[in-house]
């Protein structure tokens, strides 16, 4: 009887150790996906900053720089995000994520937002190197698209 109990405890111990290991493993994978998508967003922000600085007339318009930044945005918008959004990486499940659970309930909705963003960025990329006014006109819809997606799918803070 005593031996049985000891074995049972030992088995339970191994099981819980496995669970803890499995947990930390899952955490690492989810953390990796969160890091990747947040880094992707940082790359958007950096390139938007170059164009936005010119659009807001804080830095002088430079056609080559504008074309470069818009080209980067266009490239970034075509990078596949298929592995960025594993289940369990939403704001309700994980500390440090502001991705609302509704994303996983409404993939069609967020895909439509992504499509809109891709189109706005492609249009910007066509004209960013032409002149300041054309760039400004095409920059507005890109910002609008960011906001439109953040409105429904990102937690305030």
């Amino acid at each position: 009887m005593k031996l049985n109990k000891t074995i049972a405890l030992g088995v339970a111990g191994i099981l819980s150790a496995t669970v803890v290991f499995a947990d930390s493993h899952v955490d690492r994978a989810i953390q990796g996906a969160i890091n990747a998508r947040q880094s992707h967003m940082q790359l958007y922000a950096f390139n938007l900053g170059i164009l936005g600085g010119m659009a807001q007339e804080q830095i002088p318009y430079d056609a080559d720089m504008a074309a470069m930044a818009a080209g980067n945005l266009a490239t970034l918008s075509t990078v596949s995000q298929a592995a960025y959004w594993p289940p369990g990486s939403d704001s309700a499940a994980v500390e440090g994520s502001r991705a609302l659970p509704v994303i996983w309930e409404d993939f069609a909705g967020i895909a439509a937002e992504g499509q809109k963003f891709g189109e706005a960025v492609a249009a910007l990329n066509e004209v960013a190197g032409t002149d300041l006014d054309s760039m400004k006109a095409a920059f507005g819809p890109v910002g609008g698209s960011c906001g439109s997606c953040h409105r429904a799918y990102r937690q305030p803070e």
Binding site: M41, Y44, A45, F46, L48, G49, G52, Q56, G140, G143, G144, C146, G147, S148, H150, R151, R154, Q155, P156
Partner: peptide
């Protein structure tokens, strides 16, 4: 424009406010 100084954008209800 909804852009923060870091070129993040407003989200949630602030999108309507902007």
């Amino acid at each position: 424009s909804g852009f923060t100084p870091e070129f993040d954008t407003a989200g949630g209800e602030m999108v309507d406010v902007i």
